[in-house]
Amino acid sequence: MVISEPDGSTVSAPKQPSLDQVWAWLDEIEDPEIPVISIVDLGIVRGVRCLNDAEGSEWVVTITPTYSGCPATHVIARSVIERLAQHGLTRVRLETRIAPPWTTDWMSEEGKRKLRNYGIAPPVGLAAQQSISLVDIGRGARPASVAVPAGLQCPQCGSGEVSLTSQFGSTPCKALYRCNSCLEPFDYFKCH
């Protein structure tokens, strides 16, 4: 594509990036609260599309909030605009989609590996398969599965001997556990 300048000369317009390229740029954006994992790994970016009209291309990025009150959502939205602007995409529109609701089931395997290396135990199991009856504490004794999801391992030493310290942690997406083997405390990214 060639653009005419007012003085009659012509310059080449920047080449339109591919969809894969834009995804790759978005994959460079870190989560503001867990800076080792990208917003693509986390499943926050739900879609990217390019709309062409008379004025050129408009990029529409669809994102979904993790928890409805998570303050990081605003930072993430701003980062997307800024990052794409650095690559010359100035017409960017963000769409927020809440259905289907965000789930850790969308987290990539790569994302889980990065979390573990960072010292955060990644979510265990699939939220879609979690039974709501876990909530029904009144039926009798509290099920152990409420406190420790089966298969949860200490990200430091890999031991499965862990116990719950607090159901809520430093961010809405995490809970606090401790390892009974190496005695280290650690964050668990809740299955949600």
Partner: peptide, 11 residues
């Protein structure tokens, strides 16, 4: 726990 619950409710 209280702060996190409050945050969800605000959202």
């Amino acid at each position: 726990a209280l702060a996190n619950t409050a945050l969800d409710l605000i959202g």
